[in-house]
């Protein structure tokens, strides 16, 4: 499904601010894998996501989705394969457009956008049903501007938009980090439901070790731009936060520096 081979990226190369963000990342995802990614600040978690999404070209290596090399494609062309939800709830939706308009745009991801009318009545009906499933009351506010929604509502909507057109790979970049704990739990539950229902392949970056253990069938730990730990199946199910910390200091030779990740 997804194959990363020796992906490398240095920001600001040749300057005093040079940062080796990815130092040879190898990763192979099978169809249906739901991987959680953890690591300290600056470990390269989000950078891997952005490399896959194509925000900038990588320095070397290959990125294949479904066997197709996408490393040379611009961001909007890769969008055909990817559903993305961001950390910032403002990033994934257009605030000045209606809820149904946002969904209509998402429904055409990867399609050629024609001069046909932007939203059909059949779609409106479909959107209403999908929104009703969220249980947030959005189905009665389809013509409301998205800017009126709360952060949690916007993330739920973004999640819906990311998976409306079934993506080959769903990228969740700390998508609950900006939400309060209760809302975060709700959005996570929704995430689980959608992924299992549509049998999606997904990657989720998180700061929260408990979430990383509780969700998905595979867990990856990153450090200094490399994958240092990769577990799946039964072994992953048996993980505890303490065991993860142990593993981290073993593999990296350091203490896990980010207290927030442990406590949150």
């Amino acid at each position: 499904m997804l194959e990363l081979k020796d992906v490398r990226k240095t920001f600001n190369p040749g300057t005093i601010n040079a940062k080796k963000a990815l130092q040879g990342v190898d990763l192979h995802l099978n169809a249906g894998d739901f991987v959680t990614i953890i690591g300290g600040n600056g470990a390269g978690k989000s950078t891997v996501m952005n490399a896959i999404a194509g925000l900038w070209p990588i320095d070397s290596g290959t990125i294949k989705i479904n066997g197709k090399d996408v490393a040379g494609l611009p961001e909007h062309k890769r969008a055909k394969y990817l559903g993305r939800v961001f950390q910032d709830p403002m990033m994934g939706t257009a605030a000045t457009m209606e809820i149904q308009e946002n969904l209509a745009i998402a429904a055409r991801r990867g399609n050629h956008r024609t001069l046909r009318w932007g939203i059909s009545s059949k779609e409106k009906k479909m959107f209403r049903e999908m929104l009703a499933v969220l249980g947030l009351g959005l189905e009665d506010r389809m013509t409301a501007k998205v800017g009126l929604l709360s952060g949690g509502q916007r993330q739920a909507l973004t999640l819906l938009m990311a998976t409306l057109k079934e993506p080959k790979l769903l990228l969740l970049d700390e998508h609950t980090a900006a939400l309060d704990p209760k809302t975060a739990a709700k959005v996570l539950e929704l995430t689980d439901n959608i992924i299992s229902e549509k049998k999606l392949t997904a990657m989720m970056v998180t700061h929260n070790m408990r979430d990383a253990i509780a969700h998905g069938n595979r867990l990856i730990m990153m450090h200094e731009g490399r994958i240092i730990f990769d577990v799946s199946g039964e072994e992953k199910k048996a993980l505890t936060v303490d065991a993860l910390l142990e593993k981290f200091s073993q593999s990296s030779g350091q203490e896990f520096s980010n207290d927030r990740a442990l406590l949150s």
Partner: peptide, 13 residues
């Protein structure tokens, strides 16, 4: 309205 979202939805901005 949102450059980021547009690109993520496959629009050649």
């Amino acid at each position: 309205a949102n450059l980021n979202m547009s690109r993520a939805q496959g629009i050649n901005t």
